[in-house]
Write a protein that binds this DNA or RNA. Structure first.
Length: 356
DNA sequence: CTCATTTGACCGGG
DNA sequence: CCCGGTCAAATGAG
């Protein structure tokens, strides 16, 4: 499938670039008034993944295996079309939760990222983000021309990793795949790349990846929750840990008001308007071009945005109402970035018109 | 043989 | 009833 053993250097570069972009995003999130813990964790995790891959490439630069992954180039996260629906009922674990809390994991965090098709290669393979996925379904979606594929973490059975992703090819721009991730990985997974390491590569003893014990999750996660473990639920506890629907308190980020809420809950990205640490200067920052923004009509015109949704009804509603909706091409993806050249640090985007 | 993908049936929310 | 999402039997690849 994605067997392209070639160009390690290129992949290495990709990893590094991606790592840098992710770091920038994280930086932004740290300053953002409303940045959910989840979003930060996600970014952090991805950064670590990039590092690991990069290292493994360097270590055994001869093995193609290491290079497998190729990062999606500029990473664009897009606000997910939150249709309020979105149930992901899992039959397995369901009962336990049904008891206490009525509504359970309805809206679990999801975020979408637009990925340009792999450059060059005629084959359109969705990228490999380093995780191992197993396809469990495919469906034709109403307004879409291409079917949507459903994937779940391969280790789901073994470790109860609930992460899933959906891959959908863009209608008008077949060169772009819209990949929506849901849930976090909790599995100890070894991206094929890092697994092989000849000698025991000094891999940090993953702090994160180990299943969460049902006993101790909820509250105290604040301590060492570097990465994941929050919405993990081994059938027992569960309930709402994913997103403690904190309080009605979370205000919307529109005005730069900052609500300090902090604990998870809510929509991360926000603000924007003007600020621009990382964007500006395309040339300098190279691939840097991630725009964060709430994907809302009010502020449309955005390109990519990262956004997590939690179970806050109102907010979610608000957003959902505007974005996506039936077949309005606008929001979803608007980048004609056909092909981005990764190999080139200072790649250029010449396309000047994003939106019609 | 094992195991991942395929594909239509099934489920449940709207 | 429609539609997105998931299950699970059948199928194919290694």
């Amino acid at each position: 499938m994605e067997k392209m053993g070639d160009l390690e250097p290129k992949n290495l570069l990709n990893e590094l670039i991606q790592g840098r972009e992710l770091a920038k995003q994280l930086q932004f999130h740290l300053n953002a008034p409303t940045s959910s813990k989840e979003s930060r964790e996600l970014l952090l995790q991805r950064i670590l993944v990039s590092y690991e891959k990069a290292l493994s490439i360097l270590m055994n630069c001869g093995t193609s295996a290491a290079a497998e992954v190729q990062p999606t180039g500029p990473i664009r996260m897009v606000e997910s079309p939150p249709s309020p629906r979105s149930e992901d009922s899992d039959r397995d674990v369901k009962d336990s939760e049904a008891k206490d809390t009525p509504k359970k994991r309805k809206t679990l965090p999801r975020w979408t990222q637009l990925v340009p098709v792999t450059s060059g290669t005629g084959l359109e393979s969705p990228l490999d983000d380093g995780f191992s996925w197993r396809k469990y379904g495919q469906k034709d979606i109403l307004g879409a021309r291409y079917p949507r594929g459903y994937y779940r973490c391969s280790h789901r059975n073994v470790q109860g990793c609930l992460a899933t992703k959906q891959v959908q090819r863009s209608d008008e721009d077949p060169t772009i795949f819209e990949i929506t991730y849901r849930g976090r990985h909790t599995c100890t997974q070894a991206p094929s790349s890092s697994q092989i390491p000849p000698t025991s590569s000094p891999r940090k003893q993953d702090q994160d990846t180990h299943l969460v014990n049902p006993q101790q999750l909820n509250q105290q996660q604040s301590q060492n929750d570097l990465l994941l473990n929050f919405q993990k639920e081994l059938r027992v506890v569960t309930e709402n840990l994913d997103i403690p629907q904190s309080h009605p308190y979370s205000s919307f980020p529109f005005p730069s008001t900052s609500n300090i809420e902090a604990e998870n809950a809510l929509i991360s990205s926000s603000v924007m308007g003007h600020f621009s640490p990382s964007f500006t200067s395309p040339g300098a920052s190279g691939t840097g071009t991630n725009y964060f923004q709430i994907g809302d009509e009010g502020m449309t015109g955005v390109q990519g945005s990262l956004n997590f949704q939690s179970s806050n009804s109102e907010i979610t509603d608000l957003i959902s109402a505007t974005t996506s909706t039936t077949n309005s091409p606008t929001v979803g993806l608007g980048f004609p970035y056909g092909n981005v050249e990764f190999g080139d640090p200072n790649f250029s985007f010449n396309n000047s018109g994003f939106f019609p």
